[in-house]
Design a protein around this nucleic acid. Sequence first.
DNA 1: GATTGACAAAGAATGTACGATCTGAAAGCT
DNA 2: AGCTTTCAGATCGTACATTCTTTGTCAATC
Lengths: 230, 230
Amino acid sequence: MSTITSIRQAVPDRDDLAEDGGSSIYERLRDDIIHGRVKANERLKVAELASRMGTSTNPVREALQQLRGEGFVIMTPNRGARVRPIDEEFVRDICEIEVLIEPALTRWFVNIATKGEIEELERVQAEIESLNFEDEMRHSRLDLQFHRLMYDRHYNRHAVDLWVRHRQILGAISRQFTTSVKRQKDVIREHKDLLACLRQQDPDAAAAAIATHVSGSGAHIIEHMRARRY
Amino acid sequence: MSTITSIRQAVPDRDDLAEDGGSSIYERLRDDIIHGRVKANERLKVAELASRMGTSTNPVREALQQLRGEGFVIMTPNRGARVRPIDEEFVRDICEIEVLIEPALTRWFVNIATKGEIEELERVQAEIESLNFEDEMRHSRLDLQFHRLMYDRHYNRHAVDLWVRHRQILGAISRQFTTSVKRQKDVIREHKDLLACLRQQDPDAAAAAIATHVSGSGAHIIEHMRARRY
DNA sequence: GATTGACAAAGAATGTACGATCTGAAAGCT
DNA sequence: AGCTTTCAGATCGTACATTCTTTGTCAATC
């Protein structure tokens, strides 16, 4: 009967958001899928989810439809919703797209970056280095801030939204494990390389740097997933 | 009162699909948005849409949620849904993303294409040329088939899905006007160039060819939109 | 005796109706 | 004029009916 066990008991991280469990039904479902709390291809029954969430079925149905639009669940007529597997292939696909998009965003940033923005980037980077991955949660926030500084002003909102969504998925997955020491050093070096390219106003080199950064990050995540038989 | 006028009366094209108006509520809404039958930022009231669609409110709500997930409508709590404007910026954003993605897909195709597949492409291209844009509907189908032959087998399903969705949007828009003669010639020439690159097994040249093809297509659409004060 | 087929019953998704709650704006009061 | 109140309109949530899928059983045939 109870196909979905242990979905919502004790979500230890992310207690800073939305105090009273007031995160919307949509966010709860999405997090459960991203964090792998529901198995791949598992069926999502509205009645079951509704009783679990403590609401009626209608809000659940609408949340599922939204998730379908975003590609997190797959719905077939009269047969309900299934979890889209967040497996290595999925991560690889996302990363490959980001390897294409992020360099383009970065290239544009190189051409419009002000002195102040580059200094701000360096400030964040210095903070990242001084923190040195001691607090993964804070590091994640700083890393997000670093990239956001470059992308936020881009005119292509569609591309940036895509980046945000992809990053949320990847960030949620990588939050499940601790970054390896090698990857820590690589991240810092890659950021430094990127900053050097920015200072030198070299779009091509900056694009190449961010490409290796994204690619390396994706490879790191996939290796961890494979190691855990995720 | 009736904010949404002339949404569904007489959709002349696309009468080949789904005889009894049986296209799903989601598709109807999506088409209405894409084709510009509802104005940008216009409010979408569930009760109104429900009576128009001849159903109750619940299916409409779920369709709206799905559209929200795909980014076609913007919903704010307790204030309902608004139409996301499909304007020149939106098209430009999509095209820029495709200029990044399609070359990558093409590049991969060059490396795995079989002789039979290339011949199939040439056959479709010959059909396109013989048709010579006399039937835009059939041309659109052939053009879709042309690109689909290259992308369908790609391992990155996520990227291909993104391409399909973007292409649907662009195709729906460009179906509203007739292709200029110059663009017709350009399309045929670009396809020929691409085929030459494929035959020569030159991934870089093929990627460049598809990039100019996509870019040109986008520019053509945007020019038409601007001309019509779309 | 095992396999296949139909058939019935349970489970789940989809659709309908209605009540509760929120927003927005016009009317009334100080 | 500015503020409050009130009310219509719309969204959101709950309960129920309908329809489809699925599963389990039984019988008939090979």
